[in-house]
């Protein structure tokens, strides 16, 4: 076993256990904190794939922004300190069935992909540079790039409309 494999196994285990804790933890805040650990585990997986950029983006966006947003959203609810009701309701069986179907579908898809051949990786610095160019190249992803900006602003406008609405009602 190589060291990389060892780190992979540890990171994968942490990610999965934390993910399970997210859905089983009775306190919402604890679920939020476990989610952060799970996201951090995914960042380590990105590093093992030799993509430092995605790893840092994972931390900068998912942990620093989205997870904190989620915790703040939890704090907006009432009675956050108390435990929630039972973790499983009467739809539990149906949910388990649905996730099994999803798992089967994903497995069927993954198995169709030919076994990964160790492709030579371009040097990381060139990689980032190429990404930057591709984002604004006419032959690249210029349209999705600009549309992404418009979409993010749309998300901002929508969020402000929704969040400001109660203030007006009071």
């Amino acid at each position: 076993m190589t060291l990389a494999q060892l780190i992979f196994l540890a990171a994968a285990a942490v990610t999965l256990v934390a993910a399970i804790m997210v859905v089983t933890s009775p306190r919402l805040i604890h679920a939020g904190l476990w989610l952060i650990l799970s996201l951090a585990g995914i960042a380590v997986l990105f590093i093992l794939l030799d993509n430092g950029f995605l790893a840092v983006v994972q931390v900068a966006i998912y942990i620093d922004a989205i997870a904190i947003l989620i915790i703040i959203a939890v704090m907006l609810t009432r009675a956050v300190m108390s435990d929630a009701d039972r973790q499983i309701n009467r739809m539990g069986l149906a949910a388990a069935f649905a996730s099994l179907i999803l798992l089967a579908g994903l497995l069927a898809m993954v198995l169709q992909v030919p076994a990964a051949s160790p492709a030579p990786l371009v040097e990381a610095e060139v990689n980032l540079d190429a990404l930057g160019r591709a984002l604004v190249d006419v032959d690249g992803f210029i349209l999705p790039f600009e549309v992404a900006s418009v979409m993010l602003v749309a998300a901002l406008v929508g969020a402000i409309l929704v969040a400001m609405a109660p203030a007006r009602g009071d």
Partner: peptide, 20 residues
């Protein structure tokens, strides 16, 4: 937090652009 999130994502998009 939401405004920050949106700016954060946008700036992260811009970093590879700045490198290139």
């Amino acid at each position: 937090a939401l405004i920050f999130l949106i700016f954060d994502i946008e700036v992260v998009f811009m970093f590879p652009w700045a490198v290139a």
